[in-house]
Design a protein around this nucleic acid. Structure first.
Length: 274
DNA sequence: ATATTACCCTGGAGGC
DNA sequence: TGCCTCCAGGGTAATA
């Protein structure tokens, strides 16, 4: 499940193999993704040169240089992955899209649940509504306890869905929201507006800590992943609460509890998180 | 305005 | 063994 760390490690993993290459062929096997693959995608891409890859939130941005410059906006959804393969390597089930590059490499998109998408942006990426309304990157200076405190005043929403709101901060999904709240010792059910500045400072640090740790782990997995042999599970052994309901808290031994917040399973320690 | 819910989709897990 | 239901996930739109 691609969270921000996996999108980032995907970007780092594929960048050296795709940047500067020319797209010679585009194969669309399944156009019905979360957003339909644009009908003119193939003609726009063939002949274009790939620029420097970027990431914004969980979006991968692929700039394309050529007669009609633009940017691919790529989201891996929940089950999507990108890997490099070679001409002659037969596609497997759910391999929806291939970008064939001039040197015979193929950037192949795989997504069983099709929650991801590839879209084409002709103009500035900032003009796209999906990007324009995003909050700051969690690893940037613009994200801190002061921001969390300020935006949460008067909000009765539980702090966990508040933290997962992309207008507040991007890239914090269900897994890392739960983990950060555990590290910060905050009960995920607590109303966002009733948490002190000091506790938000600690939460912002916890978000950074867990994402940086996961990116480090994801990097290891990605080498295999990009090479085509690896599978998810990269950060699993480090999780304190996510997916561990009923098991003992690693800090105090109390049985971890499961509640639903904003339609999302939320595991926490009723003793360590207040 | 904020808060909540439904929906897109498939596969894996668990119950029977 | 197979059928059934439920759940997972991010983001957007619709509704309360």
């Amino acid at each position: 499940m691609p969270e921000l760390p996996e999108v980032e490690t995907t970007r780092r993993g594929i960048a050296p193999h795709v940047e500067g290459r020319v797209i010679t062929e585009v194969i669309v096997r399944q156009a019905r993704l979360r957003v339909p693959v644009p009908a003119d995608l193939v003609e726009r891409l063939v002949g274009a040169r790939i620029g420097t890859l970027a990431r914004r939130a969980k979006y991968l941005l692929v700039p394309l240089e050529g007669e009609a410059p633009g940017t691919l906006l790529w989201h891996l959804g929940m089950s999507g992955s990108l890997r490099l393969t070679r001409l002659g390597e037969l596609p497997k089930k759910h391999d929806h899209l291939d970008l064939v590059l001039g040197d015979g490499a193929i950037l192949r998109y795989h997504d069983p649940r099709r929650f991801g998408f590839v879209d084409w942006l002709a103009g500035s990426t900032q003009q796209d509504a999906r990007l324009a309304r995003l909050g700051p990157e969690p690893l940037s200076p613009a994200f801190d306890g002061e921001r969390l405190h300020r935006l949460s005043r008067g909000r009765r929403l539980a702090v966990k869905p508040f933290l997962m709101d992309n207008a507040v901060v991007v890239g914090v999904g269900n897994i890392y929201a739960a983990e950060a709240l555990f590290l910060a010792g905050i009960d995920p059910r607590r109303a966002a507006g009733r948490i002190s500045r000091g506790r938000y400072d600690r939460l912002a640090r916890a978000v950074r800590e867990v994402l940086v740790a996961a990116i480090t782990q994801g990097g290891t997995t990605l080498r295999d992943f990009v090479g085509g042999t690896g599978e998810p599970g990269y950060f699993k052994q480090r999780l304190n609460v996510y997916g561990r309901d009923g098991e003992p808290c690693r800090r105090c031994g109390a049985e971890l509890r499961l509640v639903t917040l904003g339609q999302r399973a939320s595991v926490f320690c009723g003793h360590c998180q207040t």
